[in-house]
């Protein structure tokens, strides 16, 4: 605080004081945008150097070729041609896509009633406890959880031994391990909280008086759900779909542990190309194709959703 000026002698003193303050705290006067850039710079540079640059490098790499240990840096589409013409790669890509879509559908469809239950039936004071309950399994080691599904679903696994022990089945079920079904079950389990949370948040945002208004205007419970609740929950469903679909397509552990030879996915092939076959460019090309596929499907989905929401109005 500046002292009140009482005589001419005090003035230089005050000026000095102000000047010192300004020099010591130059940021006080800096513009808002500059402060924003200054603050966001460290995480942004980090992401630029360790995410954007490597992703660009992968794209570049996919146009190179490698023969054992010699890297040929001439740009060529050879990897892509091979990836798209070799039925092995094509089948893996397609299977990854189908499995991911199945996982997404299964996860989101089973998650919606849970999110709805927590948002509409659970008393407000116990909502965070339910959310906590649902997130706990997610925080235990992913590797362990996938492995435990193998233990549950195996030929001599927990499910089969229990069912035969109880006399419900005579022979162990074999269609539940080392195939795509097992991958779908395991991934649906792993991504459950990712689907429940966004839908729950969207449902929580719905003003309850809107539902009462709909009932008041003569709609039944079911029609109210279809005409009011569901459209308003759509942003959450969209977020859930994307957040499940995108990472599952690149999952490595699950297909490897419970998928068997017919349940392997593209990530396993990428890993093989990089670490076993020493063909990093081919692996890079497959990674780029997988990313392109994810992006394309996500965009189609977003587009359909926008059309759907427009139709609602």
């Amino acid at each position: 605080m500046i002292a009140s000026e009482t005589g001419s002698g005090a003035i230089p003193m005050i000026k000095l004081k102000i000047n010192i303050k300004i020099k010591a705290w130059p940021r006080l006067g800096r513009s808002e945008a500059a402060q924003g850039y200054f603050l966001v710079a460290p995480p942004f540079l980090y992401a630029l150097l360790l995410l954007a640059a490597p992703l660009a490098a992968i794209v570049l790499f996919s146009f190179w070729t490698q023969d054992y240990l010699t890297l040929d840096t001439t740009l060529t589409l050879k990897n892509y041609r091979e990836a798209l013409s070799d039925p092995l790669y094509g089948e893996l890509l397609l299977r990854s896509l189908v499995i991911s879509l199945a996982v997404t559908a299964a996860t989101v469809l089973t998650a919606f009633p849970i999110a709805y239950f927590i948002s509409f039936s659970v008393p407000p004071s116990r909502k965070s406890m339910w959310i906590f309950l649902i997130t706990i399994p997610f925080w235990s080691s992913y590797l362990m959880r996938v492995f435990l599904w193998k233990v549950i679903l195996g030929y001599n696994g927990v499910l089969n031994t229990t069912l035969t022990g109880l006399g419900i089945i005579d022979e162990p079920l074999s269609f539940i391990l080392y195939n795509a079904n097992a991958v779908v079950i395991t991934l649906a389990h792993a991504y459950a909280p990712f689907a429940i949370l966004p839908i729950y948040v969207a449902l929580e945002k719905i003003d309850r008086s809107l539902l009462e208004a709909s009932r008041d205007l003569g709609e039944s419970r079911v029609m109210t759900f279809l005409r009011v609740t569901l459209p308003l929950a759509m942003p959450g469903v969209v977020a859930a779909v994307l957040i499940v679909f995108i990472p599952t397509i690149g999952d490595y552990v699950t297909p490897r542990l419970v998928g068997g030879p017919n349940g392997l996915m593209i990530a396993n092939m990428i890993q093989t190309q990089f670490l076993k076959l020493n063909n990093a460019p081919m692996g890079a090309a497959l990674a780029v194709l997988a990313m392109a596929m994810v992006t394309a499907v996500s965009l189609v989905f977003l587009f359909l959703n926008r059309r759907y929401l427009k139709g609602q109005k």
Partner: peptide
């Protein structure tokens, strides 16, 4: 939202 394997290999 990026598959982890993509981050890893890149």
């Amino acid at each position: 939202v990026l598959p982890e394997i993509i981050v890893a290999v890149s």
